[in-house]
Design a protein around this nucleic acid. Structure first.
Lengths: 188, 188, 188, 188
DNA sequence: CATGAATGAGCCTTCATTCAT
DNA sequence: AATGAATGAAGGCTCATTCAT
């Protein structure tokens, strides 16, 4: 009756589910909970128990990536030069988005369904906003663009890179080129 | 055995289908051929005859917009200042993409299914490439970005604007802001 | 494009579906559209096309029985003695309900989904109300019970008969006994 | 190997389960053992141990009501006037059935699964039968109806009342009206 | 050419019941 | 005894596409 400390086998199943989802997401396959169940060798209801909706699973898949970006943003805030701090962070962000499609999906979605994801997103937005403001304060960003603008634009860049190229390597290259243009535009 | 000269009623049906599809696309509704048939008061098979796949219908819906852009690009090539010619064209292109979702869909797709669409796309790419090259030749574009890069990026901007804003007006505003940044970046 | 005059094969399918449903209802099996489809050797969607909900199918199954009762009620109104006219009609009604479970289901349901069923139900209620009023006017019914009361009570009698007996014959006998009691009660 | 004397915590769990079930039944919610478990803050398997089937739980929920009716019937047998003894008992029975749906469910079911319920039902039937016989012996009941008939009819009245009215108060009123008709019918 | 009925795979979701802990 | 995670059959419904008329 006390809130259980997560059973070992349950945790293993849950992890299997997330792993399968991770693989599907990376392949660009839409997350269908029945498929996930089958591939994870688990009953459908088990998937539903852990993740009531595809979104919840998607956000869970995205969480580690979001956490890494939060950490990266924090580190960036400690860097000396505001402009390179910002560009460094955005480089990494873009690379993450192109490597892990769940990030773009979650960040482009109008809403989060898990509190943890909401928390991470808010934190990340706050940090990124500060990075941008710092760069602007230093005169390195001359446009009026806010992070609220820039986040969608990063998703747009990822979108563009995915259109432009098929293989991972080429996507990264295109993405970087696009980001350079945008950064140049921000820099004024 | 020459291909028949299109019966009048067939043409009328076809137009009805396209009109319905146009409306659905504008509303952001995914094109379901059954729905299209019903709304056009036409049998499903009629839709399938005219448009074997949803893509064919989508491209047909996009065609007038593509033609308008081709015309606009041709006019731009006659303008004096290469930079304003380019930016003017891109402004109109973005507005078109945000107003008519079929344009972004068709241009972001990896392939065209109708010869006519392929033709229009090729023509448009050629003209846009020349606009870009002319601007670069004039020193107004300093980056190495090609039109082959810029096309996806325009789609990315449209994507970003759609994420950022819900209503049409706001989307146009965001989109223009994003385009400004990118143009600034191109301009160097 | 004109409202089609019902295709022959479509009509055959529809009839097959109704026939299967009829059988299931008579067996007391709940109507599951998937099962109906399988038993009728028809695709699921065909069933859904003809009958969007189980209720629609149930009401269609019930319709002939309702029509027969309407006819019976009309005839009863032409009979001389108001009391025997009423009891005769109620006898037949009960027998119908016990023979065809769809009748009790439809009449006990809080709402009808098909216009035709609504129409039949309204008509039947109107006629039965007149039968009851006529009997009351003749002094043969002394209680204040209205048809609005009596309809549920008829369903209750059918319910009771179904509890009391398993086989059709016994159900009819119990039902008649119950009805006698109620009629005696009405008669005062 | 004697059956253990019931542990205190087990008894508490059992009670919690019954309480929750009571609440659900009163609300007209179908008894789903998973839900019951969750609402009782108890594992599903605990519910299954105490109540192997939904019926067992339902009968347990119904038991106090049945006991009360047994007591009421016994008291009725001590009353002077056989007719008012019977009608008084039936009034209370109906009110109980309309207040506590488990009673109608259990009494309308073809079989009992718990010995205790069977015992109560048998006892109640025996007492009610005697009440009816006594009234008939006194000439107050002229029909040939037996208690074996009357029990289903009581359930039928409850069924009718539930069809006729939505809220508890109205149900009680309709039910009483129906019962009056039936009693009048019995009385002849 | 046109119609629209028919198909059936496929996805989503729920729930009674079992079983490892 | 108790827990609650896991199961997977089962049912509901949709939709792209085919085919008989």
């Amino acid at each position: 009756m006390t809130s259980a400390p997560i059973r070992k086998d349950a945790a293993r199943n849950r992890q299997r589910i997330v792993d399968v989802a991770r693989r599907l997401v990376d392949d660009g396959t839409p997350l269908q909970l029945n498929d996930v169940a089958r591939l994870a060798s688990v009953g459908v209801a088990t998937v539903y128990r852990h993740f009531p909706t595809p979104e919840a699973l998607m956000e869970t898949v995205a969480a580690p990536g979001l956490e890494a970006l939060v950490a990266r943003a924090e580190r960036a805030l400690t860097e000396e030069d505001p402009w390179t701090a910002l560009t460094g962070f955005l480089d990494v962000t873009l690379e993450a988005q192109l490597t892990d499609p769940s990030l773009t999906i979650v960040r482009a979605a109008p809403a989060r369904v898990l509190p943890r994801t909401e928390e991470l997103a808010t934190e990340l937005d706050s940090l990124a906003g500060r990075l941008l403001d710092r760069a602007r304060a230093a005169g390195a960003v001359r446009t009026v663009v806010t992070w609220d603008d820039l986040l969608p634009l990063m998703c747009g860049i990822a979108f563009a890179a995915n259109i432009h190229a098929d293989d991972q390597q080429a996507r990264l290259e295109s993405g970087r080129r696009y980001l350079e243009v945008v950064l140049q535009g921000l820099h004024g």
